[in-house]
């Protein structure tokens, strides 16, 4: 994919090379969407609704074990959607989390849709905040909003959207409620019509903040275009081998490549 530099507001940002390595074939597709979320949030139902596939979805944590892929067309663009394993977090050493984490970081999907359970927002925000540390192109899908209503839980979608700095859509995927709006938000973020300004962790514990900042600064110096230096710094402090390898091989530097397009200073070059 070779987007012309002057027309970059709406060109895709995904990392072709890495996606290929991750096993995603992008020929015939314009954008790649990653679907992340806690187990049992109706993520697979959202996936099925978007793609028209029928994957069984139960009231159970942990149904999707293998990664599912599908596609859909919206406003003349072809979207490939990758259903990541449902995880509570992206910080652990389990295979599921590694798959999800590496896909978002190295694949640089054009949009990451995070599905959360409207009745359990606080717990789900843990994952949301982690994803927002990695990518700034995300849409929050507050699913099971019908269940929340039934339990008299009112989710203030606008406040949530303002606080998180990304589009937030309330859906009830089982009733197909809100799916059109979700598609619209996905398209807007993918094409660059909507620029996210994602929330980043405000108060990292004083005990670790200094360490994170020090590494972050060194990373910024070496990889000035990296969109998520703080995340990389935090992963280094956790001893994440895939990050260490990516730094050694210079692969981390590649992550700026397509991203660069959006930075005004590179256009000046």
């Amino acid at each position: 994919m070779n987007p012309s530099p002057e027309n970059c507001a709406n060109c895709p940002v995904h990392n072709m090379g890495n996606l290929k390595k991750l096993g995603v074939d992008m020929s015939d597709y314009d954008y790649v969407i990653a679907l992340a979320g806690n187990p049992n949030t109706g993520k697979s139902t959202v996936f099925n609704n978007l793609t028209g596939l029928r994957q069984h979805t139960g009231n159970w944590p942990g149904k999707t074990v293998t990664r599912a892929e599908g596609g859909f067309i919206y406003s003349d663009k072809k979207f490939k959607i990758v259903d990541l394993p449902g995880t509570y977090s992206l910080l652990s050493t389990s295979t599921d989390e590694e798959v999800a984490r590496d896909f978002i970081l190295f694949g640089q999907p054009d949009v990451t849709v995070i599905v959360v359970d409207a009745t359990r927002i606080e717990r789900n925000l843990n994952l949301v905040l982690q994803v927002l540390e990695i990518t700034d192109r995300a849409v929050l899908c507050v699913n099971l909003i019908d269940e929340a209503r039934r339990h008299n839980i009112i989710v203030d979608i606008r406040t949530l959207g303002k606080d998180l700095g990304i589009p937030v859509v309330a859906t009830a995927a089982r009733q197909r409620e809100g799916m059109d709006e979700l598609l619209k938000s996905i398209e807007e973020v993918a094409s660059g019509k909507y620029t996210c300004n994602p929330y980043r962790l405000s108060k990292v514990n004083p005990g670790i903040r200094k360490a994170v900042e020090r590494i972050q600064n060194e990373i910024k110096e070496q990889f000035p275009d990296l969109p998520n230096p703080r995340w990389v710094a935090m992963r280094l402090l956790e001893g994440d081998q895939s990050i260490i390898d990516a730094i050694k091989s210079g692969e981390l530097g590649d992550l700026k490549a397509e991203k660069q397009i959006h930075q005004p200073e590179t256009i000046q070059n």
């Binding site: 509570y88 910080l91 652990s92 389990s94 606080e122 717990r123």
Partner: peptide, 11 residues
């Protein structure tokens, strides 16, 4: 190990 992390992931 995993048990500890799982607990923290769950809040």
């Amino acid at each position: 190990g995993q048990q500890r992390r799982r607990l923290m992931d769950l809040g």
